[in-house]
């Protein structure tokens, strides 16, 4: 079972890999064809990290239970002052306390 490979599945996976690579290089190909970048487009590109990452955070917050909400709020406060790993630890600890001590 573990070593089984179906050619059909392999082609499907490789097609998915090519589709993914196209998204990863597509923006570069488009942007390098432009001579100059208009200021509004530059402003939009500068906003990409915050805009995309927010979409991974906001639904996770609003669609979760109290445990995750509290953990994320604790992490938010921690992130204003402390670097990555401490913030991650604070949020994790809050989730553990909620689940195992408070029973959320």
């Amino acid at each position: 079972m573990a070593g089984q490979i179906s050619m059909e599945t392999v082609w499907l996976i490789l097609a998915a890999a090519v589709a993914t690579f196209l998204t990863r290089i597509g923006g570069y190909v488009l942007i390098t064809r432009m001579r100059t970048i208009p200021p509004r487009m530059e402003q939009a590109l500068n906003a990409v990290p915050a805009a995309v990452l927010t979409t991974l955070v906001a639904p996770a917050f609003f669609n979760s239970g109290f445990d995750v909400k509290i953990a994320m709020l604790v992490a938010l406060v921690a992130s204003l002052k402390y670097p990555g790993l401490l913030m991650l630890g604070a949020g994790w600890a809050a989730a553990m306390i909620c689940r195992h001590l408070l029973g959320f």
């Binding site: 990863r24 923006g27 570069y28 942007i31 990409v48 990290p49």
Partner: peptide, 10 residues
């Protein structure tokens, strides 16, 4: 979304 990334990374 990676299209936006690669444009911004360029």
């Amino acid at each position: 979304r990676h299209i936006l990334y690669s444009a911004a990374l360029a």
